[in-house]
Simulated assay, not measured.
Amino acid sequence: MRGIPIRSLAAAVTIGVLALSGCGTQTAGAPVGPGGSGDDRTIRARQVMRLTQVHEETGMTLLEGPVFDEDGRLLVVDVTAPAGEAKVLRVNVRKKTSEQLHTDARGTYTSAQFSPYDGRIYLTDFSHGDIVSLAPDGGDPRTFFSGEVDGSRMNPDDLAFDREGNLYLSDSRGMSEGESRGRVVRIDRAGKKATVLADGLASPNGISFDADYRGLWFSELTRNRISYLLLDGGGEAASRHTAVRVDGGVARTDSIAVDADGNLYQGLHGRPAMAVYDKYGERLATVEVPARAARGLESATNVAITPGGTRAYMTVSGPGGGYLFAFEALAEGTRQSNGG
């Protein structure tokens, strides 16, 4: 979810101008993937299918939060889908078919993830500050969390679960009179206790645990940087530092996924591409949509890497519609590269 000042985002959704914001191959002479080397590596993604078109009512489509279910079907949220149209889609990537899994009259859903605690699908409702859960078949909607955290309502964007099922959220509040107001928030798995782990952030967006669950990577949309938040044994913040400064030009940092080797896949809003870094901040590769397929596409928001495999599916959107593109990741997928 990205693009315009947070204080006017809800209104923008209402009037339909929300501006959030064979598989991989490689450029000749630029080795890519495990064991690859070289300073200018480009992974070329290939188009799998178009999932959505621009909605007449909202004037946009924006795909986000890809996550595989236990049957290998890919769930994707459409942030700008109006009431009655698919807000959560279920995709058979092999057959290249999709169906509506969930819709409602209210939600602006920006991410999806399965809880390791109860197996339900959790969705972040950016506009209303709620966390909603669904049964795996898309039914039985419940409000898991609603209300203020430390006196302020959230704009929850992305989420990650720890092994016990507690939620960690990027609260993508923007600027107010020059003050950065975004936060990283932890909600216990019962939905009863919310704790601010970091504040003073500039529209935090992507969030994911590292490969060892020792800490969280999170990006800030309006500062083009990725930070690392080390956690203590109780899920509280121990330390925080800027880890990567992303040279995005006009593009900005969107969602984050982490593979089994700890590599970071940083989505870009404003360019149909992803930047890939190792855990020490070295730029390993750029995942690109080929120019001939990129017309009408503006952002590569997020990615899901097949659990236990390396096939990756990237959500790409723009005036040309909402698409899935596929590429070969540098390492296998885990929970941290499947949803959020």
Rank of each mutant, 00 (worst) to 15 (best):
R252W: 05
F144M: 13
D212L: 13
H269Q: 08
G182M: 09
D150W: 05
R240L: 15
P136N: 09
F114T: 01
R283D: 05
G233D: 13
D199R: 08
M60P: 01
F209I: 11
R283K: 14
R73C: 04
R94G: 15
I187W: 09
D125V: 08
A81I: 06
A12I: 00
W217I: 05
D130E: 15
S203F: 14
K87Y: 02
T97S: 15
I256F: 00
A198Y: 00
K193L: 07
L169T: 07
Q336S: 05
R245W: 15
D130P: 03
W217G: 03
E56K: 07
Q266D: 10
S152P: 04
A285Y: 02
V149N: 01
T306Y: 13
A194R: 03
R142N: 11
L101I: 13
G182P: 02
G322S: 13
S219R: 06
V289R: 02
V17I: 12
G215Q: 11
M154N: 09
G182Y: 01
G33F: 00
Q26K: 09
Y228S: 03
Y313S: 11
P116A: 01
L284H: 07
V48S: 08
T42N: 03
T42R: 11
D247N: 13
M154K: 09
V88S: 02
P272L: 13
G182I: 06
V149L: 00
L221H: 14
V287M: 02
I226K: 04
R311C: 02
D69T: 05
E164R: 15
T52P: 01
R292A: 15
G191M: 07
S152M: 08
S21R: 10
E236M: 12
